[in-house]
Every structure is written in C-alpha cells, then in structure tokens.
C-alpha cells in the first residue's frame, strides 16, 4: 500500500518519448490521408456507382468497421507471410490503419456528399456558375461544414489508435514507454507521463484542426 513516486526518473526519458510521439502523429497523419483517399473513392462509389460497386464498397466498410483493427493487423502481420507476403511491422500497422480508417472515412464522406442538395446545385447553375465555381462555392463549403466535426474527432481517435502499433514493436510513443519500462521499474510514472503526452498532442491536434476549420472553411469548431 506504499509507493513512492519518482517523477524525475520518468522526466529523464522525456525527449525519447517525445520523439515517439512524433512518430505517433506521423502514423496518424499517413493513416488519415491514406484512409481519406480510399474513403473518397468509397464514398463516390457508394453514392454514384452502380448496384454492384455499392455492394462491394459496403462489404468492405461493414467488415472493417465491425472487426477490431488490432486483429486486422494481426492478420496482415502473421497470416500474410503464409502466402509469401512478408510485411515489416511499421508497414503492416500502417496498412491496417489505412484500411480501417478508409472504411470509416467512406461513411463520413458519404454523409458529406448526401448533404449537398440537388436544388442548391440547380440554383447555382441558374445563376450561371461554371462547374468549377459550383464545386468551389457550393459543394466544398457544404461538405466542409458537414464533415469538419466528424473528421476532426476521427483524427483524434486515430492518434489514440496508433498506440496499438507498439504491440508489433513499432517504436512510437506507447512502444517507447514499453521499451523504457522493461529496463526501469518506474512504470507508473513513465506511463503517466506518456498519458500526459497523449493528452497534449491530441489537444494540440484539436487546436490546429479548429484553426484550420475556422480560417480555411469558416467552420466554428470546438476544441473541447
């Protein structure tokens, strides 16, 4: 029932942990944009594609959103070598994150496409806008407004999700915390500092996203 905290011990490792946090952010960033690209095709396919394309995309979305990302990555990492595909840990995790976020971002972006009303596009055509102008002044602002909040909270969720890369030996923030804790017994302190870094980087990410939203898309976004 007695435990003496020694925070100095954990703070000594702060630079090492912060480097890991940078890798976490990079993983989340790549996962997000990779997923956004897949999601864009997925959403376009679901909204404008035929029945068959809809079915295929839906199958992908439903499968990936209803199974754990961790097990998906296990599959990529342990099962694919059986068919001769050997992925390094970082690549396996990144592919897993991209496929996973692609499924979620398909649904989020689809909601954005649906939110653009046909009547508004017609109104813009009547005003004599060109296709480029319609996209610039009608479709993009509309989609940005509907999508901004879900996209930012998804991004935060993804940053937190990257911690599972540690399970495959990737040295991002959690992975580095585990590394230290194997040679050092101040585990509570180290993981508390790690938790604080996660809080800090997600708040930082929220703040940056809110600023982007406010100035680029004129969306009032809450940081908290």
């Amino acid at each position: 029932m007695t435990y003496t905290f020694q925070w100095g011990e954990a703070l000594k490792h702060l630079p090492y942990l912060l480097e890991g946090a940078w890798l976490s952010l990079i993983l989340a960033f790549l996962g997000f944009w990779g997923g956004a690209l897949i999601g864009l095709f997925g959403a376009v396919g679901k909204v404008y594609g035929g029945r068959l394309i809809y079915r295929i995309v839906d199958l992908y979305v439903v499968f990936f959103t209803n199974t754990p990302a961790l097990v998906q990555i296990f599959f990529l990492f342990y099962a694919l070598p059986e068919v001769g595909i050997l992925l390094p840990p970082f690549t396996a995790v990144l592919i897993g994150l991209i496929l996973n976020s692609g499924a979620y971002l398909t649904e989020i972006q689809r909601a954005g496409f649906i939110s653009v009303r046909q009547t508004e596009i017609e109104a813009a055509e009547v005003l004599g806008m060109s296709l480029a102008q319609i996209v610039r002044y009608v479709i993009v602002p509309h989609i940005a407004k509907t999508l901004f909040a879900p996209l930012s909270s998804f991004y935060i969720w993804l940053v937190l999700g990257t911690s599972m890369a540690s399970i495959f030996g990737v040295e991002e923030l959690t992975g580095r915390a585990i590394n230290i804790s194997t040679t050092n017994f101040r585990t509570i302190e180290i993981f508390s500092v790690t938790a604080l870094i996660y809080i800090a980087i997600t708040i930082l990410a929220s703040a940056v996203l809110a600023l982007i939203g406010r100035y680029a898309f004129r969306v009032r976004a809450k940081i908290f």
Partner: peptide, 16 residues
C-alpha cells in the same frame, strides 16, 4: 484523450 492500451498499462502497474 488517452489510448485504451496506455490506460490498461497504467491500471496494471498502479495495481502492482
């Protein structure tokens, strides 16, 4: 704002 995995570790180590 803390990953579930990190929470699990903190709880585990705190209890230990």
């Amino acid at each position: 704002r803390i990953p579930f995995l990190v929470i699990l570790f903190i709880v585990l180590f705190a209890i230990q």
